[in-house]
Every structure is written in structure tokens, then in C-alpha cells.
Design a protein around this nucleic acid. Structure first.
Length: 271
DNA sequence: ATGCGGACCTGTTAGC
DNA sequence: TGCTAACAGGTCCGCA
């Protein structure tokens, strides 16, 4: 499921419930996530006040004076706010219980998500240390994207989905921003001129910002912390539209696979 | 250094 | 209708 807009929507949903509140209990029902949940995590978090809920790439960072917990939603994860008396259901892998009785409950059928401990210097955690700039940061510019692609033969779609190049761009929004920028997803990253890269960086920024405003994209499972779906799906121009007419030129939208992920594009509008 | 395929999981859907 | 195979929003790792 979740790409950056869905994670950001989740962050905004859970932050008011967590920030400034003390964790009375962390209840872990299933430790076998993408990586095993560390055995001392409950001890590290119990009694700690969450002073800030941040996002880095697609990781949610729960910051306490003792250290930072990292949550990743994987492909099918979600976090909902529930009452402490609500019974856990299947795939509800952990609960963050805070003073006052609110519970943030993590559900993830595929268990590609994770719950990890990043200590006092989260930026140095191996999963965060190598990440590229945030797409909403000032460091993410056309010039940066152009420089990062110089001499590379990798397809531009895979290039922008590489978290070391830019953090948080997944398949849906890579497809959409490449369409908006008029760039063919299989074009080599090193064979795109600076003005087109500038256009692409701008479209990545724009499409992600729009999706955040719409509460993300719900294809199937994704729900925000309030259980509402995201409404960006109606705005998708290519993703999931194979065989349908391009909204720009009327040609058929094509489907292919890159790196085991679905790619959608218009061969007339994208070169 | 770069690039590829496999791996981790379950649930839903498409196809026979 | 029922079984099986393919596919799904992520991304790390090991190998060539």
C-alpha cells in the first residue's frame, strides 16, 4: 500500500493522539514482521513520553527522550486509532497504548511492515543513513536529479524509486509523475536533459503534495488512521489504467513490468 | 559500482 | 462452482 502520501496521512492522523502523551504500554502480539521486533522494545518505550511524531521517507519516527521507535507500513500496513477496550482482530500485530486510554493499533496482513528501535541518533540507523533527500525538501531539485542520473543506464522509473536517490517515491507516484513530465519510464536516467529533469522533480513534488491533500491513494486496503480511504485514486492519469484512453491524447495506456513492478505509460505522450 | 532476481508474507482476483 | 496461479502499494540482500 503505502507510499509517502499515505504514510504522511497516517502521521497526521496519529500525531495528535501520541504527541505529548506517555506510553503506558506497548503490546506486541506478533514479532515476526519484516524484521523481528526487538525483544527489549517494550522496555525501552514503556513510560516514555512521545514528544514528536515525524516521518523520514516512509518511516514513521516516534521520538522519546530515551530514543526513537521506527514504524514502517510495508505493503499492507495501517495504523488506526482505537479504544483500549476494542478487541484486536487478525493481523493486529501491536498496540501503542497511551495515557488517557487511546490506542494506536498496527495492522499488517502481509507482515512486510516493521517496528524497530533507532536509539538516540535515528539518522544513523542503517535503514535511514543512506536515504536520499525528502521530495519536499529544498535539496530535491531538478539539478540534483540530473546530477544523480549522470552516466547511469538505469531506467528513470527505477532511478526515482531508488530510496538512495530520493526518499519515499513508490510505483504509483513514479508512474504518475513520469506521465506528467512526458518522460518514458524506460528511458535511461543518464539520457534526460536538465530541463526535463527539472520538470520531473517539479511533478514529483506536485503529485505527492496533491496526494497528501487528498489523504493518499486507496487502491484496495489502504485506510487512514480514521479508517477513511484516500481520494487520490480519481486523479490517477495512468496507474492501473492499462487499455484505457490516455486523458491527454486518447491513445491506449500501456502496461509493462520494470523490476517486478507494474509500469503504466502513454507511448505518445511520454518519450 | 551497478544491476538483477529472489526473498519476505497474505489476500484477492483472473483464468481455466 | 472450485481450484490454481498470478499479482499487489515496499525494499533489502546477495550474487553476477
Amino acid at each position: 500500500m503505502p507510499e509517502l502520501p499515505e504514510v504522511e496521512t497516517t502521521r497526521r492522523g496519529i500525531a495528535p493522539v501520541l504527541e505529548g502523551h506517555r506510553i503506558t504500554e506497548l503490546i506486541v502480539r506478533e514479532r515476526r514482521l519484516r524484521w523481528p521486533v526487538p525483544i527489549d522494545l517494550e522496555e525501552n518505550l514503556r513510560g516514555q513520553v512521545i514528544h514528536h511524531v515525524e516521518r523520514r521517507a516512509k518511516y514513521l519516527l516516534l521520538k522519546t527522550a530515551n530514543g526513537t521507535a521506527m514504524v514502517h507500513l510495508g505493503m499492507s500496513g495501517s495504523m488506526r486509532i482505537v479504544d483500549k477496550y476494542s478487541a484486536p482482530e487478525v493481523h493486529d500485530h501491536f498496540d501503542i497504548v497511551v495515557d488517557g486510554g487511546d490506542v494506536v493499533r498496527f495492522n499488517d496482513p502481509r507482515r512486510f511492515g516493521s517496528l524497530l528501535w533507532a536509539g538516540l541518533t535515528p539518522a544513523e540507523h542503517p535503514l535511514l543513513a543512506e536515504l536520499g533527500p525528502e521530495p519536499f525538501s529544498n535539496d530535491f531539485t531538478g539539478k540534483y536529479l540530473w546530477q544523480s542520473g549522470r552516466g547511469r543506464k538505469v531506467a528513470i522509473k527505477q532511478h526515482v524509486m531508488n530510496s538512495k536517490i530520493v526518499a519515499g517515491v513508490g510505483s504509483i507516484y513514479a508512474n504518475e509523475s513520469l506521465f506528467r513530465a512526458g518522460i518514458h519510464p524506460k528511458r535511461a536516467a543518464g539520457r534526460i536533459a536538465l530541463p526535463r529533469m527539472t520538470k520531473l522533480a517539479g511533478e514529483i513534488h506536485a503529485v505527492l503534495a496533491e496526494a497528501v491533500r487528498q489523504g493518499g491513494t486507496t487502491l484496495r486496503d489502504y485506510r487512514g488512521s480514521d479508517d477513511k480511504p484516500g481520494y487520490f485514486r480519481q486523479k490517477l492519469l495512468v496507474y492501473g489504467r492499462a487499455g484505457e484512453a490516455c486523458k491527454q491524447c486518447g491513445d491506449l495506456i500501456r502496461h509493462t513490468v520494470q523490476g517486478q513492478r507494474a509500469t503504466y505509460y502513454c507511448s505518445t505522450c511520454q518519450r
